[in-house]
Structure formats: structure tokens, C-alpha cells
Computed example of a mutant assay.
Amino acid sequence: MPLSAWSRNVRFMPTKPKSLFWTRTDTAGAEHVVFDDGQGLVARGVVLAVDPIPYTCRYQLTAGPDWATTRVEVEVEGAGWSRSVRLEPGGGRWRVTTGEQGDLDAALRAAGHPPAGLPGTDDPDRLADAVDVDLGGSTLFNILPIRRLGLQRAPAESARRIAVAWVLVPSLVVVPAEQVYTSLGPGRVRFASGTFTADLDVDPDGYVVRYPGLAERIDPR
């Protein structure tokens, strides 16, 4: 189902939804999202970047009142190619649906990068332990574990280890990943995955203000 069709079926957003904008600090790019977080989360966003090749990524995300992901749909397109993936949890496993047009691998090779492989996953059972989805290059998706675990206002505490379905961009390959979130006190959360660590500045609602090495939020004056 294309994003435009899904928009007509997701929970209605209020006439004055919230909006956040981040500028990328790792490459030329930005992210803008419009959302309603009155009862869980309904969000529509766009990520733009030029690395590894120029692309536009559009996503829709819904999470329940417990902030566990209920549905994610992503579309990415560039010159001569496009891909899509939809992830839906249910019955102890994730349903992963993909689409592809054009040849992303050819575009990557032309730019001197290795091929991306096929979108989605050939074994959804590998995602069975995941509660959250993490979209590569997006700052918004950090809100899911932060709110679900109540880290935005928590005192400094021990690390919380989680499993996520990590959606790589622009390939939309979906892989299982282990991440660690640690509250450093109100307004500070440490994110770690593998050898990468970043101390995130978050607002009182848990949305990222500054993500070192990825993005900084621009708030209206």
C-alpha cells in the first residue's frame, strides 16, 4: 500500500499537529516530521540526504499508547530507482512487505559504492525479539524506546538493552540489532549500538534535540 493510501487509513491527526525539524551534521541533509502523540504516536516524516547517494525517504509510523511500534512504512527514491518496505508486528513475528522499481545497486556502483542487496529480510523470524523499529538516518525513531522505557525524565540508571528491527537506508534492508539506552538523568540519554555511542540531548517529552554525529534540531524562534 503506498503511503498516500495508508494516510487515509491511519488515525486522524488533529488540525494542529506537532512538527519537528532536524538538520543533519554527518552529511548534507535534513528530517522533518509532522505527528500526533496524544495517545501513542502517529507520524509522517521525510528524510533527505546525499550520502551514499542522493535520496528522499518518506515514512509513516504508528505506535500504541505503550509506545510499542504497531506499523512502519518507508519509501525511498533516487534517480532511476525506488524501494519500499512495510513492517507490522503480530502473532509473535513481524510481517515484512517490500517493493522495488529501477536499480539501486546500479546507482550505487556508478557512485563507487558496493551493492545494497534486496530490501526487507529473507527471514522475518530473525526479528522476533524486536519491539521497536529504528530507521537509519532518522532522529525521530529514538523516541520509541525513550518513551516506552520512560527514560526522558528518569534519574541516572543502569543500561536497558533492547532488540530492534533496523531498517537500513537507502537499501531498506531490515536486520535485527541490539541497542542499549541508558538514562543519564533528565534530558540526557546515552545510545549505544556495537562500538558506537552517543549521548543524546532530549526535551521533556523525549524527542531528540541534539544527536552528536547525526543531527541537531532547529526550533522555530
Rank of each mutant, 00 (worst) to 15 (best):
E73D: 14
E100K: 03
G137M: 05
Q101W: 06
Q152W: 01
V180S: 05
T97Q: 12
A107D: 01
G64V: 11
R11G: 13
R148K: 06
I218F: 04
R161D: 13
A106H: 10
G120I: 06
G136N: 08
T197P: 06
V174C: 09
G185W: 00
Q179P: 10
R8W: 12
A63W: 00
G102F: 01
P170S: 09
A156E: 11
R147D: 10
P14F: 08
D201Q: 10
P212D: 04
R71G: 15
S171W: 04
W67G: 08
S7Q: 13
V180M: 03
P176M: 04
Y207I: 09
D219R: 14
L135M: 08
R148E: 15
E157K: 11
L214D: 04
G187N: 05
L20M: 12
G90F: 02
R11N: 07
T25V: 08
G99K: 03
R153G: 15
S7L: 09
T121D: 08
A192R: 07
G102N: 05
V169C: 07
L184E: 14
A107L: 01
N9Y: 13
P119Y: 07
R147S: 08
L20F: 06
V174I: 04
G99Y: 01
R93M: 11
Q39Y: 06
D203P: 02
P170G: 05
V96G: 07
A63P: 00
S82P: 04
R44A: 13
R148W: 03
E31W: 09
R93H: 12
R95D: 14
F141D: 09
G187S: 10
V131E: 14
